[in-house]
């Protein structure tokens, strides 16, 4: 059976191990074999690090790709940021720009071979394109009773669309389909494709962007938000706590749980969620679990 390198980056294994645990359990449920590669480093996020040192960003991404290439395996990630960095860097490394030439030279001098052989994909893309609907559905043993979900795609897996080449950059559907396959109901939500705002360094603007999105989610009357990116996750989870603190008492809203797609999937697959650290978020998910798990 083909194996894949599980690329966790640094946020997931260190701050959000519950996503790590859910993804591994879900892969087992699907019969997908993943391998841990100790030699991987952080991806280097594509929002501000690419902006502060493009050459270094390319070198680190190129190194991670070379590490997978040396093992002859492809990479699966659990975050839009890691995916965007690895996919976009692989593209930019080959367009002849000065930073790419510099990165290639340094990598080859250090003994890393990056011939564009190892491909990186977000694990949700892999589910949708490679594993397929039938297998995903079949892995789901438990029935969720009417779980309504606001699907949040985030930006970096879809755009720039000429590099990511995945789905329509503004009207994608693959994650809605995966949510449905995992037994939940994706609910139409104002501004589905809007950005979470996490990369904006000016906190006031960043929060205002998140708040708008959260208002739309509240109006849609969903049980939870499903994300596939850690920046979005933090922005909505911790973000709701921060916004709650700032708001006047009477204006405070009941926070809405925010979970990663693999947590939804593993829940439907029948995993014992108590063992998977679901409650490690700022917004607790107890109510969500009670409401939906029969």
């Amino acid at each position: 059976m083909q194996e894949y390198a599980l690329f966790l980056g640094c946020m997931i294994p260190m701050k959000l191990p519950q996503i790590d645990a859910a993804a591994r359990a879900a892969f087992t449920g699907l019969g997908v074999k993943v391998e841990d590669v100790e030699d991987f480093s952080c991806c280097l996020e594509p929002w501000n690090f690419k902006g502060t040192d493009l050459a270094a960003w390319l070198k680190v991404a190129g190194r991670n790709l070379a590490v997978a290439e040396a093992r002859g395996i492809d990479i699966l990630t659990l975050c839009n940021g890691c995916s965007a960095t690895l996919i976009e860097a692989a593209h930019l490394m080959r367009d002849g720009r000065a930073e790419a030439e510099e990165a290639r030279k340094v990598l080859s001098k250090a003994g890393y071979k990056d011939d564009n052989k190892a491909k990186a994909s977000h694990a949700v893309t892999f589910l949708s394109r490679e594993v397929g609907k039938e297998k995903v559905e079949k892995s789901c043993k438990r029935r969720l009773s009417g779980l309504k979900v606001a699907v949040h795609y985030g930006c970096h897996l879809l755009r720039p669309s000429d590099v990511m080449e995945l789905d329509d950059p503004f009207q994608p559907s693959f994650l809605d389909e995966l949510v449905r396959e995992a037994g939940a109901e994706p609910v139409e939500c104002r501004g589905t494709m809007s950005c979470c705002g996490s990369a904006v360094l000016e906190r006031g603007v960043s929060q205002a962007i998140a708040e708008e999105k959260l208002k739309a989610v509240e109006e849609a009357e969903v049980h939870c938000v499903v994300v596939i990116c850690l920046a979005c996750l933090g922005q909505f989870d911790l973000g709701q706590v921060e916004l709650g603190r700032k708001a006047k008492k009477e204006a405070r809203r009941k926070p809405i749980p925010v979970i990663h797609y693999f947590q939804l999937l593993v829940m439907t697959q029948g995993a014992e969620v108590k063992k998977l650290g679901f409650n490690r978020y700022k917004v607790k998910v107890d109510d969500l679990l009670k409401a939906v798990v029969a």
Partner: peptide
């Protein structure tokens, strides 16, 4: 983001990280 130059990661490793991973049965 510059943490990475020193530690390979943007997030700093700690004992709490090890503990949480152990609780979840992670490598």
């Amino acid at each position: 983001a510059e943490n990475i130059r020193r530690t390979d990661r943007v997030i700093v490793h700690s004992e709490a990280v090890d503990r949480h991973r152990k609780e979840l049965g992670l490598p």
